[in-house]
């Protein structure tokens, strides 16, 4: 187990290097150190000397990928790519274009993101599984057909519609909850209800369909027949046997998401004015702030890889057949 985790973490390194390579290439393709210096120094009256001085000051005077002036290993290590990447690896994200510390911003903003994403995730998961089990219990009935029709309709409507319609109905017409905003602590609960509900509802259609098909696949298996032959009631069969086995494929899709919940939801946060990482990202995109986008990409990848490892570990816990090597 320990050896396995160590190996997976070692495997993560080339992946993160790859991610960095992609972002780095994207970043410097359009934003060379010269451009950055010019932008920072102000558009007017920049001399090549000033640019060079700025680059030296800020550590941008090295070549991108390959340093021909150095010898040996430092041909590769004394480059912008390696130095910039190393900073990311210790989560030193540097400054945004507006001069703020990105790491501090991220730390501050991930809690509001989590306040929305975590309840949405948990309530959504539980509702989806419960409803799916219910219609599997009544499979082939009118309830099944009707739910499936509603599910297709739900997943065919744009998520933006639910947000807009929800805001208009619950906030504007009925005045049940504030239309947007955020407060920390219990006071903030009223701001969270609507986005969480909308998030859960928008995911219902595809969720129910997916879980239903997983459970239906299980229900025709031999061990379920054995369980019935034991004299278990259909409900017991579903909860004691089908659910447990049906959950295994669900793990793959679900556990990997958990760490990335920190990243928040771009759309939700910007519509509801939540000061989380999602709206942080969207603001950065609109302001074309590459430093922030790059940091978020790196953070997202790290969280995703953690998610992959967690998925594997969760399998050893839930599936006795899996032993990690």
């Amino acid at each position: 187990m320990f050896a396995y985790i160590v190996r997976r973490l070692l495997f993560a390194v080339p992946i993160l290097i790859g991610v960095n390579l992609i972002t780095f290439a994207l970043f410097f393709m359009v934003n060379t150190p010269d451009d950055m210096a010019r932008a920072q120094l102000g558009a007017k009256q920049t001399t090549p000397e000033m640019i060079q001085a700025w680059k030296v000051d800020h550590g941008y005077d090295k070549p991108l990928f390959f340093n021909t002036e150095s010898a040996g290993l430092s041909k590769i290590s004394e480059t912008l790519f390696v130095e910039q990447s190393l900073k990311l690896f210790v989560f030193d994200f540097g400054q945004s274009d507006s001069g703020r510390q990105i790491s501090a911003d991220i730390y501050e903003r991930m809690w509001p993101s989590l306040a929305i994403a975590l309840p949405t995730f948990i309530i959504g998961l539980v509702t989806n599984i419960a409803l799916a089990l219910l219609i599997v219990l009544f499979r082939g009935s009118v309830l099944d057909t009707a739910t499936m029709m509603v599910a297709v309709a739900i997943m065919s409507i744009s998520g933006l519609f639910y947000i807009i319609a929800g805001q208009v109905l619950f906030s504007k017409i009925w005045h049940w909850v504030p239309i947007s905003g955020y407060e920390s602590g219990w006071e903030g609960l009223k701001f969270l209800i609507l986005p969480v509900l909308i998030g859960v509802f928008a995911g219902l259609g595809s969720g129910i369909r997916w879980y239903r098909s997983l459970f239906l696949e299980e229900i025709n298996k031999d061990y379920v027949r054995t369980a019935r032959a034991k004299g278990l009631s259909e409900i017991k069969v579903l909860f004691a046997h089908v659910l447990q086995n049906g959950l295994l494929p669900i793990l793959t899709g679900v556990v990997v998401v958990i760490p990335t919940l920190f990243m928040g939801s771009l759309i939700m946060e910007s519509f509801f004015g939540i000061p989380g990482l999602g709206s942080y990202t969207i603001d950065a995109i609109n302001a074309q702030d590459f430093s922030i986008v790059k940091s978020m990409v790196f953070l997202g990848s790290v969280l995703y890889i953690i998610g992959l490892i967690l998925t594997d570990i969760s399998y050893t816990y839930f599936d006795p057949r899996v032993r990690l090597q």
Binding site: Y223, T226, A227, Q244
Partner: peptide, 13 residues
């Protein structure tokens, strides 16, 4: 009792 002992038992129990 059934033909396939491999699949007739719940694998995670």
């Amino acid at each position: 009792i059934f033909q396939e002992p491999m699949t007739s038992l719940n694998p995670v129990m």
